Computed example of a mutant assay.
Amino acid sequence: MTLRQYLTSKSFFKQLLLAFGIIIVLVFLILQWLSYATDHGNEITVPDLRKLTEQQAEEKLDELNLGYVLLDTVDYNKDFPKYTVVQQDPLPGAKVKDGRKIYIKVNSADFGMVTIPDLIEKTLRQAEPSLVALGLEIGKKTYKPYLGKDMVLEMYADGKKLKPGDKVKKASKIDLVLGDGKVGFEEETDSIKNTDTETAE
């Protein structure tokens, strides 16, 4: 029998079908083994732990056979109760394997303290970003006669006058007293008036 005759014979097609059958069975068995080895289909949905205390989060994770690791406390966030979870990894809704550890960060009890920088006789344009960068808020702005317009003359927090180096809580409102830039002009005008009067006399 020639090769050409063999390739077109029933015997060859039977063996070819048998080979395909064996390959399909092997692929199926391999996929089943992989599914079993990776525990496919038995994933756990990560719960939302935000705003839960560490103990509440631990109890919730224990029910799902998940663990947790407390990484750190974060700067106080007023949108979350103190000592509650602020951040978690993996995020809520993620799929994880049995026994996976969830990494959490907990809210501090209160705002941290920051040091007031020396902003006296700095312009408002310079002072404002410096205060915001420290986590402070700009409060009331009042003006009083001073040659430099929008120049910081005094700073207050809760009615108390601040000096460079004082410490205040983050997120505090800092009230600013600024120069109105009118003193120089008024003095110059008064001087001209006085000169005119003297000349007339």
Results as ranks from 00 to 15, higher is better:
residue 81 P to H: 10
residue 83 Y to E: 11
residue 69 V to D: 11
residue 39 D to A: 15
residue 84 T to R: 08
residue 40 H to L: 10
residue 79 D to N: 15
residue 76 Y to I: 00
residue 82 K to A: 08
residue 44 I to P: 01
residue 72 D to C: 01
residue 78 K to I: 06
residue 53 T to I: 00
residue 70 L to W: 14
residue 68 Y to V: 00
residue 63 E to S: 15
residue 58 E to H: 14
residue 83 Y to A: 06
residue 87 Q to E: 06
residue 48 D to V: 05
residue 39 D to V: 10
residue 53 T to V: 02
residue 66 L to Y: 07
residue 65 N to S: 13
residue 87 Q to W: 08
residue 62 D to Y: 09
residue 75 D to I: 01
residue 44 I to T: 10
residue 60 K to Q: 13
residue 44 I to H: 04
residue 39 D to S: 15
residue 53 T to H: 03
residue 40 H to P: 00
residue 54 E to Y: 02
residue 50 R to V: 03
residue 63 E to P: 06
residue 58 E to T: 13
residue 48 D to P: 00
residue 60 K to E: 10
residue 86 V to C: 01
residue 73 T to F: 05
residue 76 Y to Q: 04
residue 40 H to G: 08
residue 70 L to M: 14
residue 69 V to F: 13
residue 55 Q to E: 14
residue 46 V to A: 03
residue 56 Q to T: 04
residue 53 T to K: 06
residue 82 K to V: 02
residue 62 D to T: 14
residue 70 L to G: 04
residue 55 Q to K: 14
residue 76 Y to A: 03
residue 54 E to N: 07
residue 50 R to F: 03
residue 44 I to S: 04
residue 71 L to D: 15
residue 50 R to H: 05
residue 59 E to R: 13
residue 42 N to W: 05
residue 73 T to N: 12
residue 45 T to G: 04
residue 75 D to Q: 11
residue 39 D to T: 12
residue 58 E to M: 13
residue 69 V to Y: 11
residue 56 Q to I: 01
residue 54 E to Q: 09
residue 39 D to R: 15
residue 44 I to F: 05
residue 61 L to I: 07
residue 41 G to T: 09
residue 78 K to L: 08
residue 67 G to T: 12
residue 84 T to G: 07
residue 53 T to M: 03
residue 82 K to Q: 09
residue 67 G to M: 07
residue 43 E to N: 11
residue 52 L to R: 01
residue 65 N to H: 10
residue 57 A to W: 00
residue 40 H to Q: 11
residue 73 T to L: 06
residue 72 D to Y: 01
residue 72 D to R: 00
residue 67 G to C: 09
residue 85 V to K: 02
residue 65 N to T: 13
residue 63 E to I: 13
residue 66 L to M: 12
residue 68 Y to L: 12
residue 59 E to A: 11
residue 45 T to D: 04
residue 45 T to V: 11
residue 64 L to R: 05
residue 55 Q to W: 12
residue 43 E to Q: 11
residue 76 Y to N: 06
residue 51 K to Y: 07
residue 75 D to T: 04
residue 61 L to T: 01
residue 80 F to S: 10
residue 44 I to Q: 03
residue 52 L to K: 08
residue 51 K to V: 07
residue 48 D to E: 05
residue 64 L to Q: 04
residue 73 T to I: 06
residue 87 Q to R: 10
residue 60 K to M: 14
residue 55 Q to Y: 14
residue 70 L to N: 12
residue 66 L to N: 09
residue 58 E to R: 15
residue 52 L to D: 02
residue 57 A to V: 04
residue 53 T to N: 07
residue 75 D to R: 11
residue 84 T to E: 07
residue 86 V to I: 15
residue 44 I to W: 00
residue 85 V to S: 00
residue 82 K to T: 03
residue 43 E to R: 10
residue 78 K to C: 05
residue 72 D to H: 03
residue 67 G to V: 05
residue 55 Q to C: 06
residue 46 V to G: 02
residue 52 L to Y: 00
residue 69 V to K: 12
residue 65 N to E: 10
residue 43 E to C: 07
residue 71 L to M: 14
residue 85 V to Y: 00
residue 57 A to H: 03
residue 58 E to F: 09
residue 41 G to F: 05
residue 61 L to D: 00
residue 60 K to P: 01
residue 56 Q to M: 07
residue 58 E to K: 14
residue 66 L to R: 08
residue 64 L to C: 08
residue 51 K to W: 01
residue 83 Y to S: 08
residue 68 Y to G: 01
residue 46 V to K: 00
residue 63 E to N: 15
residue 53 T to D: 05
residue 78 K to G: 03
